[in-house]
Nucleic acid binder design. Sequence first.
DNA 1: GTGTCGTAGG
DNA 2: CCTACGACAC
Lengths: 263, 263
Amino acid sequence: MSSLKIASWNINSVRARIDIVRQFLEQEQPDILCLQETKVRDDTFPFTMFRELGYDHFELKGQPMHHGVAIISKLPLHDSGRHDWQDNGEARHVGVRLDCGIRLENVYIPAGGDIPDRTVNTKFGQKLDFLERMIAWSAELKEPTLLVGDFNIAPLECDVWSHKQLLDVVSHTPIEVETLGRLQASHDWVDLGRHFYPAPARLHTWWSYRSPDFTANDRGRRLDHMWASPDLAKKATGHYICEPCRSWIKPSDHIPLVTVLDV
Amino acid sequence: MSSLKIASWNINSVRARIDIVRQFLEQEQPDILCLQETKVRDDTFPFTMFRELGYDHFELKGQPMHHGVAIISKLPLHDSGRHDWQDNGEARHVGVRLDCGIRLENVYIPAGGDIPDRTVNTKFGQKLDFLERMIAWSAELKEPTLLVGDFNIAPLECDVWSHKQLLDVVSHTPIEVETLGRLQASHDWVDLGRHFYPAPARLHTWWSYRSPDFTANDRGRRLDHMWASPDLAKKATGHYICEPCRSWIKPSDHIPLVTVLDV
DNA sequence: GTGTCGTAGG
DNA sequence: CCTACGACAC
């Protein structure tokens, strides 16, 4: 029995953010870091800093301009898989198996555009379709799995700064919440955030860049999540968010999430 | 009789370079700073840092994308003028009069493109024409004047890392050197650089960004100059270049020049 | 190499 | 607000 610390962070460009990624790793010392929105091709991924800190194992799924996910680890990674559920070339998923037997699945669910109507905004339809394809995949999972990433959905009323004002804002619409609910049900996923901090605790993971005084009005949302298979959830001994990272210099608009497992 | 310290620097974007401009001002504490290639519109000029350091007087001539010159001063500035000698809207000159009676003229002479042939490269023709118009202007100057800026010409053999290899490279061609010579003759300008460091002393003010190890082979050129009216030159008590600035983080490709006058 | 800008995406 | 990219200039 040993302790395993896993972090997840939408980094909004791993190259532009390399200094705060280092700062986070030095401070939290996770065994594994899952990144979303790396915005880098695999052949220009900034390996050096990670290797300097003892992270020698990488599973990358990048693309030229947008999206991009990565798993960066001090521990060996096996049986990596990259789902392109919508067969559109977008780099939104990478998964691995760890020596301890658990699978780690890192996903960046589409943001979904501005207008929450699939008839006028194809991106919103793509987001819902992406979730449907994840549901089919998730229902078949057999191994104990940690599913982490930027889900771009804040499901509960207390997951946004104003439930009423965000009911028609992409990320908190009823159709998204309902679809995410079916994804959760498809594997009986345990939402570790709410497992450790039951509603209505405040647990925001994202604040828009567009209000520079984001701490003043605190208009955040919980868009990032870590979900565990039911049996695996019992092994989670700790879970927390790293809110101070949002105030670091040149921050990401998202903050890191951390889960500690006894494995 | 008091001492007046004037600096000139092609800064290659005053906004991108704001930290090293502050570092330079704190270190050298000039009374007046002349900048070229500010690359900023006058309405978005970064006044704040300069005011924090006691520079309350500004004469700006900016434009949206390229070029742009500025005079930033602890001392009052009067009778400002902006010549657009070629009437093409390019922000390449600003001049002022100081309380001590001398005029300060800050100019950014066109680079002139890659090919030193005015029949195939209109930019080279524009550079020579710009010099001709400066000659006509300079010949009529009556006040004691300090003419500073990025002249984009290295006139002497010792002003470039290899006279032979640069004879056909824009900035050191015979026609440019001859034309700059006539500009100098038109007012009997004293080249303060060579006044204080006679040829063949090394006195480079620019090193290309394209060789990252610029200190290794030292392929520099003396493109930046400070010229004084004959009588004013007698009042120059010091002159130097600030070569370490080329090694600062996020440097300009040019270094600052400094002249001290007893006025 | 290192800026500017416009466009696209968040 | 913040990023990436591509075109252009130096």
